[in-house]
Computed example of a mutant assay.
Amino acid sequence: MRVVIAGAGSVGRSIARELLYNTHSVLLIDKSADESAMRRVPEANWLAADACEIDALNEAGLSDCDVVVAATGDDKVNLVVSLLAKTEFGVPRTVARVNNPKNEWMFDEAWGVDVAVSTPRLMTALVEEAVTVGDLVRIFEFRKGHASMVEMTLPANSPFVAGRLGDLVLPPDTVLVGIIRDQIPIAPSPDDTLEAHDELLFITAPESEDELENMLSPGQRVKRPRDED
């Protein structure tokens, strides 16, 4: 997979290293790129240019890449890069960093963003995921697909403890994609049995989240709070 990353700060470099470790091809674009910066991720290709300029994106070969990651510290730049990647180059997938959570509402398909990642929100979700039992925790949203990845640690008093997955009737547009039990990931199958404190990972539509939570953990709370950015 060929990935172009706009922004070679700590976030962009960290993403690049992880992708390179997984044997993907990576190009970093940063107008401040110099030899010192390039030595920090020498395995990547580099382009010293402004990622908001069409000529720079042409030189980066966006028309031949699989994913564009807009990872700069400027939300305006990340939106412009995502929009250009989609509209001018037809990049299949764009991932954009949201620096200010108040701007998150703009990071959607209208601006060419497939997946928006807000670091503060992701950190909050990971904290909640680590300490809550019986609450549905939204990990992140797939903007283009109008779906979310959510997690619940199944409480011991859930009516589905010891039940077969094949007998579990989920809300509309909801799929169980994984179970983590004793820190070991499990691919769900109809014959699997749920256990107390299983971490359940779902892909679901936002409008199904309340039903899912109330079904798995009845009485936990009446209504999930919604984001109001």
Results as ranks from 00 to 15, higher is better:
Leu126Gly: 01
Ala96Lys: 12
Asp135Ala: 11
Val67Ala: 08
Ile139Asn: 01
Ser82Val: 13
Asp66Ile: 05
Ala116Leu: 07
Arg97His: 15
Val117Asn: 04
Phe142Tyr: 14
Arg93Asn: 07
Cys65His: 00
Glu141Trp: 05
Ala116Trp: 11
Ala96Glu: 07
Val67Lys: 01
Cys65Ile: 00
Ala110Thr: 13
Glu109Leu: 12
Cys65Lys: 06
Ala110Met: 11
Trp105Glu: 08
Val69Ser: 02
Arg121Val: 03
Val69Thr: 06
Asn103Leu: 09
Met106Gln: 14
Phe140Trp: 10
Met123His: 14
Ala56Val: 10
Leu136Asn: 04
Met123Lys: 13
Val113Phe: 11
Glu141Asn: 10
Pro120Ala: 09
Ala110Gln: 12
Val91Pro: 05
Leu57Met: 02
Val131Lys: 11
Val77His: 00
Ala125Asn: 06
Lys144Leu: 03
Phe107Pro: 03
Gly145Asp: 14
Lys144Trp: 02
Leu79Asp: 04
Glu109Tyr: 11
Lys102Ile: 01
Phe89Trp: 06
Lys144Glu: 02
Asn78Thr: 04
Trp111Tyr: 15
Leu83Asp: 02
Asp55Leu: 10
Asp75Leu: 05
Val133Pro: 02
Met106Glu: 14
Asn103Met: 11
Val131Met: 09
Val80Glu: 00
Glu104Thr: 14
Val91Asn: 04
Lys86Met: 05
Asp66Pro: 09
Val91Glu: 09
Trp111Leu: 13
Leu79Ile: 15
Val133Arg: 13
Gly90Arg: 07
Asp114Glu: 10
Lys144Gln: 08
Val91Ile: 05
Leu83Gln: 13
Glu88Arg: 14
Thr132Gln: 12
Asp64Met: 08
Val95Asn: 11
Thr132Phe: 10
Asn100Phe: 06
Ala71Cys: 10
Thr94Lys: 08
Ala96Leu: 12
Trp105Asp: 07
Ser63Glu: 00
Glu59Phe: 03
Val80Ile: 15
Gly134Ile: 03
Gly134Tyr: 03
Val117Ser: 04
Val133Trp: 01
Asp108Cys: 06
Thr119Gly: 11
Lys76Thr: 13
Ser63Leu: 03
Ala96Asp: 09
Lys86Glu: 10
Gly90Leu: 08
Ala116Asp: 02
Arg93Pro: 01
Leu122Tyr: 07
Leu136Asp: 01
Ala130Ser: 15
Val77Ile: 13
Asp75Tyr: 04
Val80Trp: 04
Asn58Ser: 10
Thr94Gln: 09
Gly90Lys: 06
Leu83Lys: 14
Thr124Trp: 01
Val67His: 05
Glu129Leu: 09
Glu128Ile: 02
Leu57Lys: 02
Glu141Gln: 14
Phe142Asp: 00
Gly90Pro: 04
Ala70Asn: 07
Leu122Arg: 08
Val113Met: 07
Phe89Asp: 04
Leu122Val: 12
His146Met: 08
Ala70Val: 14
Leu122Asp: 00
Glu128Tyr: 14
Thr124Ala: 13
Thr119Tyr: 13
Val98Arg: 03
Gly112Trp: 09
Ala125Glu: 04
Gly61Val: 05
Val113Thr: 06
Gly90Thr: 03
Thr132Lys: 12
Ala70Lys: 04
Ile54Pro: 01
Asp135Trp: 06
Ala71Arg: 06
Lys102Pro: 10
Gly112Asp: 05
Ala70Leu: 07
Asp74Met: 09
